[in-house]
Design a protein around this nucleic acid. Structure first.
Length: 1058
RNA sequence: GGGCCGUUAACUCAGUUGGCUAGAGUGCCACCUCGACAUGGUGGAAGUCACAGGUUCAAGUCCUGUACGGCCCA
């Protein structure tokens, strides 16, 4: 006998033990195999950023993945869940930089190597925390394989991918507008730009027409960029367009003569419009291609020059492409953008060219890092040609045909590997994916950071005159900036050598160097140099490595490949098995589960890269987009708001299984789920609703300091207060953990299961069961019923998993275990269990199967109970396969014969249960004590039902004796209406409370009358009778008849009361 | 500005192609410490399905519009 089970399930007592048992048994480890009898099921984790600990959103996503992974493992798939973390370039560099700054250390002072070392330490710390959290929440990852986006294996993939794209002309150097952060001196990705509403102004500036016939008035929020104006645009539909056509204006201060062009991007002026833009518009737009993304597009359409008038710090500068500085303009050079704005406005006013100034509130992009306004700035960056058909087109062709609409002919699925196989769940997200690729822009992949994969390109600038003859020959007649492949010693040695003419007199040469694993496999004319030698030679020749690093998403995009050893798994023995490797076995993976804001940043890029590098193969077939967890006020949980919840807090207050169960139950296919969050007082352990304050931005957050609910002299600090740096936890005022009553349901459910098993173990201890498998047809009524319910439950759960209906899974489990097994089955078998060997076997089997079904959602408690239930197993049930296993995590999913789904038994059970409920209601109304046994007097049909239910009604309704009603009602009785006949109860009390009885029956009568009215109304509708399907009409007729019979019975009973 | 989602009981949410008398959990009320479980049991009260139109024999479900809340992309 295993040790006794405690009265209450205490998760903390067992979770760690169970985790260790799993780890020791290697239950989650998968090996590559060519065994075709064992299909693969694989998932790569969306690697969490090493910037911070996991929050509840991660807990949700990883729980869902774990449910699927554990389910498929039990179904016998060769199952692998690849864990890992993401270096998260900009985010990590920012937090580390901030941390160092608090100690007075500046990044630039310490130098690149030392800084990377520091960042590495941070990464190690958080990687440990994150993997620990995953394990605590029960994620059944193959932890031995844990990867990091910057480890050797991933770095090798990055190098090979970059090299391949570079060689194939899909990576290029472009002068483009980037989101420039002038304070941190780096370009930001679009998603790193935060839009903020700013109360600014609209300035109306007059630009004189060249012919002296007047002026046009342009409206702008950014007067300081006017130095770079290269046109004024009007809408072609503007009435003034005709008279302005073909004219030029003289740009004030600068003196540049610029054309008036027509472009329908320009918003027509309309002071009466509800649209703020139309209200504010003057109808004329100054066009500054080098300093505004929309103007850049206009510039492309009209072939305008882009004149960059700013330096990297956003001061006005003549060093970046602005020549011919007028005397008037010279004083502005060197001014900051803020000072320049004031000075320009002042100049216009002084020269009587300022028409007016209007207050204008608008949205301005700000740096996620430094929080200053972003400067759209022209700079040299590396790009991936995502818009190329080989990438974006391929992603579009990947979409399943029933999830894509009006796809351009050239993008329609063909017959290439992977075409038409990508499926989104819920399917509406396919639209997001499609629209993104139809409007995709090339992907800026360089970042001016130190933390990341440094770009593997070495550059040098040479004077055209001094350049190699083959280079100048190759560059003849190419446009400036166009890269041309060069045959050279470098390309012979395995590099990719390109050259670009960047000015009339200068050429830039770039050599992309692959790493050794790639070099070794290249057919190259000169195979004498390895990577180190090649780099040394390049540097000796004046080449310098590009200091930038790659966008974090570049390495993430390779995740389903890089973690499995691509491109050369044989270089990493841990990825190979006897006859195959991870990549062959597990890519494409089965599923990606992620949040919807990642569709463009990550899903898209994984699809493009996996398909490009692996011959059209998709990274996964299914993409499941899960809901977002909001706080109790409907606000997104986020780091900056400090309203995130650490899953460890919930595990502490409720246990991992309770958290998982509740998260799974909350997962419907809507967009958001709301999670009201409470705090736990660290002094008393009491949970309470904190005091909320409103931030400047209008968010409701927990006040930084909270008083203890039990003792107003004690206080604590909130996660919000700490997150925004307003307070620090101390001994007197520690950080309060969070909790939420939402998880009580999960906790109670765990406890319910625990006690059901406790009951069975106690009652079956010493029982003998049955020597041969139970033939269900000879089992008792309730046993047949619970097996039929088990059959139904198993198939419902299987369908739910297939369709990613997580809430259905949780609700179905809950309903089966709590209501069917505990409330009905266990209560019903109490009187018979001890003497019925078949029943003992069925009970053990039902609990065994229940643990298996519940395991994917609640792995800890089920694994803990597993040996106890094993002990309680007293024989098999025919048609129910429950193969033994030491560890539940690797046990088989139950299979059950369709023959056990006995519909007639279920129908009779439901009838009997309705009778039970009627009797219980009546007992309750008459205040009959639970222990009091009563007598039923019933007509033949009801007697037959009660008899056939084998004691069920007697046990659950507290019936002592059952008599036929032939002899007429007993002397002291309470009548009830059941299935159209009268059933009498006696022996409840000495004197029936007639008033209560009358009230109850009157309620029944009026309810039945109302129903009858409804049915009759329906049936008197000619359209319904002739238009609705026959079976529905018949159903209504049957219900009407039943209701009428019930009404008559209730009325008779009422009359009988006198 | 474009796109998406939500609005159903006091609260948090289900409700699959239109078709039972709209469900669950929590909370609330009453009774119950009966040998698994008070993190429990039994019974009960509680909803104009946001609003306005429309389609249909039939609308919580489909269509149009409005209001409010939220998210994503510009």
């Amino acid at each position: 006998m295993t040790e006794e089970l405690a009265k209450v399930y205490v998760p903390a007592d067992t979770e760690r033990v169970v985790s260790e048992r799993w780890a020791a048994s290697g239950a989650f480890h998968a090996e590559p195999t060519t065994d075709t009898t064992k299909a693969s099921y694989s998932v790569v984790i969306p690697p969490p950023n090493v910037t911070a600990a996991l929050h509840l959103g991660h807990a949700l996503n990883n729980t869902l993945q774990d449910v699927l992974v554990r389910y498929h493992r039990m179904r016998g798939f060769n199952t692998m869940w690849m864990p890992g973390t993401d270096h998260a370039g900009i985010a990590t560099q920012t937090v580390v930089e901030k941390r160092l700054l608090q100690q007075g250390i500046k990044r630039l002072d310490m130098g690149r190597e030392a800084f990377i070392e520091k960042t590495q330490e941070w990464k190690d710390e958080y990687e440990t925390t994150i993997l620990g959290q995953l394990s605590e929440l029960g994620a059944s990852c193959d932890y031995e394989r844990a990867r990091f986006t910057m480890d050797d294996m991933c770095a090798t993939a990055v190098r090979h991918a970059f090299y391949t794209l570079f060689k194939d002309g899909l990576i290029y150097r472009g002068k483009r507008l980037v989101n420039w952060d002038p304070v941190s001196g780096t370009a930001l990705a679009d998603d790193e730009v935060e839009m903020e509403d700013v109360a600014g102004h609209m300035w109306y500036l007059r630009y004189p027409l060249e012919d002296g016939s007047g002026h046009v008035t342009v409206a702008t929020t950014r007067p300081e960029t006017m130095f770079g104006d290269t046109a004024v645009a009007v809408n072609p539909n503007d009435p003034r367009a005709n008279e302005l056509r073909g004219k030029n204006v003289v740009l004030p201060i600068v003196g540049r003569v610029i054309p008036i062009i027509e472009d329908d991007y320009v918003v027509l002026a309309d002071p009466d419009s509800t649209d703020a833009k139309a209200q504010m518009s003057s109808g004329c737009l100054k066009v500054t291609p080098a300093h505004d993304p929309n103007d850049w597009d206009i510039g492309l359409r009209h072939d305008l020059e882009a004149i960059n008038v700013m330096a990297a710090d956003a001061s006005i500068s003549d060093q970046y492409g602005w020549d011919e500085i007028s005397d008037e303009a010279r004083p502005f050079i060197g001014l900051s953008r803020e000072d320049a704005r004031a000075a320009v406005v002042e100049w216009f006013e002084a020269n009587d060219l300022l028409d007016k100034v209007v207050d204008y509130s608008h949205s301005v992009g700000h740096s996620y890092r430094s929080h200053v306004p972003i400067e759209p700035w022209l700079s040299d960056q590396w790009y991936v040609a995502a818009s190329d058909d080989r990438l974006a087109g391929s992603a579009l062709r990947a979409q399943r045909s029933d999830q894509v609409t009006d796809l351009a002919p050239e993008h329609q699925a063909g017959d290439t590997n992977g075409d038409g196989e990508l499926r989104f769940v819920p399917d509406r997200y396919a639209r997001t994916f499609q629209q993104w690729h139809e409007g995709i822009r090339d992907w800026c992949i360089s970042r001016q950071l130190w933390w990341g994969h440094q770009i593997p390109v070495w550059n040098r600038t040479v004077e055209s005159a001094a350049a190699d003859g083959s280079i100048t020959a190759a560059l003849v007649n190419t446009e400036q900036g166009t890269a041309v492949a060069i045959g050279s010693a470098w390309s012979a040695a395995g590099g990719v050598h390109v050259a670009r003419q960047i000015t009339d007199t200068e050429i830039v040469e770039s050599v992309c160097v692959p790493n050794d694993s790639t070099l070794r496999r290249l057919e190259r004319a000169d195979a004498t140099m390895d990577e180190a030698a090649l780099v040394a030679a390049l540097e000796a020749d004046g080449f310098v490595r590009d200091p930038d690093v790659l966008d974090t998403w570049f390495s993430s995009a390779l995740w389903p490949m890089s973690t499995m050893g691509w491109p050369y798994p044989e270089d990493f023995p841990e990825t190979t098995g006897n006859d195959t490797n991870l990549l062959e076995t597990f890519n494409p993976t089965s599923l990606l589960s992620t949040a919807r804001e990642i569709i463009t940043l990550w899903v898209s890029r994984m699809v493009m890269f996996n398909r490009y590098f692996l011959d059209g193969q998709l990274p996964y077939n299914d993409v499941f987009i899960h809901a977002m967890v909001q706080d109790g006020h409907g606000q997104k949980m986020s780091k900056s708001l400090g309203n995130g919840v650490d899953p460890r807090d919930i595990i502490y207050s409720h246990g991992a299984d309770a958290m998982r169960f509740t998260l799974v139950q909350m997962t419907t296919d809507t967009q958001d789920v709301r999670m009201p969050v409470d705090m736990v007082c660290p002094h008393s352990g009491e949970s309470f609703t904190p005091e909320f304050i409103t931030t400047k931005a209008g968010h409701l957050v927990a006040a930084p300091t909270q008083n203890s609910p039990g003792d107003p002299n004690k206080s604590m600090v909130s996660a919000y207060g700490v997150a925004v740096g307003l307070v620090e936890p101390s001994n007197d005022a520690p950080l309060a953990r969070n909790t939420s009553a939402k998880f009580d349901g999960g906790r109670n459910f765990s406890n319910k299961l625990w006690n059901a098993v406790r009951f069975a173990v106690g009652r079956l201890d010493g029982a003998t069961g049955t020597s041969k498998p139970v033939d269900v047809s000879s089992a008792s009524f309730v046993d047949q019923w619970i097996l039929a319910r088990l059959h139904h439950t198993i198939s419902t759960l299987e369908t739910a998993v297939e369709n990613y209906q997580f809430n259905v899974y949780a609700d179905t489990l809950y309903d089966f275990i709590w209501h069917d097994v505990c409330d009905r089955y266990l209560e019903a078998i109490k009187p018979t269990l001890d003497d019925d060997g078949n029943q003992q076997a069925v009970l053990g089997a039902v609990l065994d199967a229940s643990l298996r079904l519940m395991h994917p959602v609640c792995p800890f408690i089920t694994e803990t109970l597993w040996p106890h239930v094993g002990q309680a197993r007293l024989g098999d049930v025919m048609g129910l396969e429950l193969p033994a296993s030491d560890i539940l995590a690797t046990a088989n999913w139950p299979t059950i014969d369709a023959g056990l789904a006995n519909a007639a038994v279920v129908a009779n059970f439901d009838r009997a249960y309705r009778l039970i409920t009627e009797i219980r209601t009546l007992r309750s109304k008459q205040n009959v004590k639970p222990k009091q046994r009563i007598t039923v007097h019933a007509p033949a049909a009801v007697l037959e039902l009660v008899d056939g239910a084998g004691g069920l009604v007697e046990t659950l309704a507290g019936i002592g004796e059952v008599h036929p009603v032939d002899a007429g009602p007993p002397p002291v009785n309470s009548p009830l209406a059941f299935e159209g006949s009268q059933v009498f109860l006696s022996g409840m009390t000495d004197e029936v409370d007639l008033d209560a009885e009358r009230e109850r029956l009157e309620g029944v009568v009026s309810q039945k009358q109302k129903q009858i009215g409804g049915f009759k109304g329906k049936l008197s509708n000619e359209g319904y009778v002739s238009g609705a399907p026959e079976h529905l009409v018949q159903e209504t007729r049957d219900m009407l008849a039943a209701a009428e019979a019930d009404l008559a019975a209730a009325q008779a009973a009422l009359d009988g009361l006198g």
